[in-house]
Design a protein around this nucleic acid. Sequence first.
DNA 1: CCTACCGATCGGTAGG
DNA 2: CCTACCGATCGGTAGG
Lengths: 197, 197
Amino acid sequence: MARIKTDNNLTRKEVIVTKAATLFREKGFKAASMRDLAEAVGVEAASLYNHIKSKTELLHELCFSVANRFLHKIDEVELEKNSSVEKIEKLLRFHINEMIHHYEEVYVSDREWKHLSDPYLSNFQNQRRIYRKRFAAIIEIGIKNKEIKSIDAATAVLIMLHAISGIESWHRSIKKISAEELEENMISILVGGLVNR
Amino acid sequence: MARIKTDNNLTRKEVIVTKAATLFREKGFKAASMRDLAEAVGVEAASLYNHIKSKTELLHELCFSVANRFLHKIDEVELEKNSSVEKIEKLLRFHINEMIHHYEEVYVSDREWKHLSDPYLSNFQNQRRIYRKRFAAIIEIGIKNKEIKSIDAATAVLIMLHAISGIESWHRSIKKISAEELEENMISILVGGLVNR
DNA sequence: CCTACCGATCGGTAGG
DNA sequence: CCTACCGATCGGTAGG
């Protein structure tokens, strides 16, 4: 029943979650109503509740599925025997590609998490904090190695992660450059800086 | 009456706008209610309407006062006889300081403008687009001069502006580094890049 | 500046 | 999956 797949290979619930991501991105979590979502899915609002428990549950699922992907990636990267700069570049490329290919979910997870309620809210904030600390630790090793210049690692993480969230603007505009060009430009600027030398 | 200044030298309306900025940042525009705002100001909700026309008017005022400050700054910077890198650095330092010292307003203007309604919405989007184009034009001149390496200027603008919005995280955390250190670190990373050479 | 109150809309439930 | 409907909350107004 609920597990039956529709034409496009998604369960009804998956369709709802996907449409919710788009709506939450467009309008924000609070401004997007369950009636909006029902219309996007093609049912009456009450019918949504046969597949989901609440509006907030949709936000949980989006936020934590994104957070898990990033945590798995950093698990993987930490184990590699690469230089710090190579590890950072791998993480950045992952972030960039997530933002390009799973735009709606990643954007919602990044901007709407504050509307989570409390067992989930502090849980999410913790995961985020831990992720950033692990990212900063990679940078700090690079600084000790003289591979990376002497900067505040937490600030560097903050810059890089927010810079990538700027892909949002690229996504909503007429895409003058391709996804590949965007990726290379971002890596070049974030790792190598602006100036010619 | 409405123009009379209170103890802290702000009119009643200015107090309302300031408190609104804080609330809109904390909860988001939609989730912050006029009753919340009334409580923060210390009056009943209905009384707010003696000083303002609507909730949306508060958002207009916040968004456009911030936008105007940035437009005036770029007017000024464009007229200077500096190199492109110097101009960019000046703009970045202005952004950083605005974000540090007028955090609430700048954050709201940056993240909540999509809740503006339509004469204002398209107006704001236009100003934003124009600002970014002028910023990108400065970078493009630097590229032609060989002062700046060959990158996509629009991507560089997007990275830099979003990176600076990351100061939000710094603002909400126990500030391990000072505002001055933050500024120098950001400029160093954004202009000079990460790697040691 | 307040009390009293409005129509609209919200997330969600009951019951079939 | 739908119809019917709920209590709560919203932005805002009337009238003093």
